[in-house]
């Protein structure tokens, strides 16, 4: 199972079969999620209508962490087993994960303005998201910093793993720092109790974000495979030209 998709050609064939299904599922889930989130669910008794921002904020934050985990696992697989697709998957995941992190930050800030009265509060979760965003930026910058793409992906794989080990430590220290500096009365993002009426749109949106990620991931991996082919052909033609 593991090495079945190691061959990029086989992966491309597999992607061609599965992609329309994922695309359809994503559109459907977003339609249902938006309907449930914006129309069918009541306003929260505590947060009022602002609770609707949760349906995009929380899935974004989930996906930000999910993508980083996926990226780190792919990087580990790429480094240890030299699995060619794992490498491409990690590279393709980074911009998607960074986008989700960015969305979690922006929607969190928009949620914070009516709740806290400020666009930015050094809330533990938002702060952790900000650091995660920097980790994504570092990964992408390092990936692009070398003339040889192979070097870039190897160096950034090591960075992703180092970052992954550090994420819990950073999370722990930010939580610690936050409790030291903030009165406990501040409303924690996400609220204490998740109501059943909030839960179903949240879950549907969460699954929609996941299938969206898979959809874009397939496209981006296909792009990387194609770009590698182009590079190989160009090298071959260049070496032929020298002879």
């Amino acid at each position: 199972m593991f090495h079945r998709f190691a061959n990029p050609a086989r992966f491309l064939r597999f992607a061609a079969v599965i992609q329309p299904w994922i695309a359809g599922l994503t559109v459907l889930l977003f339609a249902v999620g938006l309907y449930l989130g914006l129309l069918a669910s009541p306003a929260d008794y505590q947060q009022g209508e602002t609770v609707r921002m949760m349906y995009v904020h929380v899935p974004s934050a989930w996906m930000a962490l999910f993508c980083y985990t996926g990226m780190a696992i792919s990087c580990g697989v790429a480094l240890i087993w030299k699995h060619p697709l794992a490498d491409l998957a990690a590279k393709a995941t980074a911009p998607v994960g960074a986008s989700f992190t960015f969305l979690a930050l922006v929607t969190g800030s928009l949620w914070g303005k009516p709740m806290w009265g400020a666009w930015w509060v050094w809330d533990a979760r938002l702060t952790s998201m900000l650091v995660l965003f920097f980790l994504y930026l570092g990964y992408m910058a390092l990936n692009n910093a070398f003339d040889d793409p192979g070097r870039g992906s190897k160096a950034s794989s090591i960075l992703a793993l180092v970052g992954f080990v550090n994420v819990p430590i950073i999370k722990f220290s930010v939580d610690w720092w936050n409790t030291l500096h903030q009165p406990a009365s501040v409303v924690k993002m996400g609220g204490p109790a998740i109501h059943a009426s909030i839960l179903s749109p949240l879950l549907v949106m969460g699954v929609a974000f996941t299938t969206y990620y898979l959809w874009v991931l397939l496209i981006r991996i296909r792009r990387e495979v194609t770009a590698n082919k182009v590079r190989a052909l160009q090298m071959r033609q260049a070496s032929r030209g020298e002879q």
Binding site: F134, L137, A141, N166, I170, S173
Partner: peptide, 10 residues
């Protein structure tokens, strides 16, 4: 600096 500073936070 982009790589290292986030890891310095703890």
């Amino acid at each position: 600096s982009l790589l290292v500073l986030p890891l310095y936070i703890p």
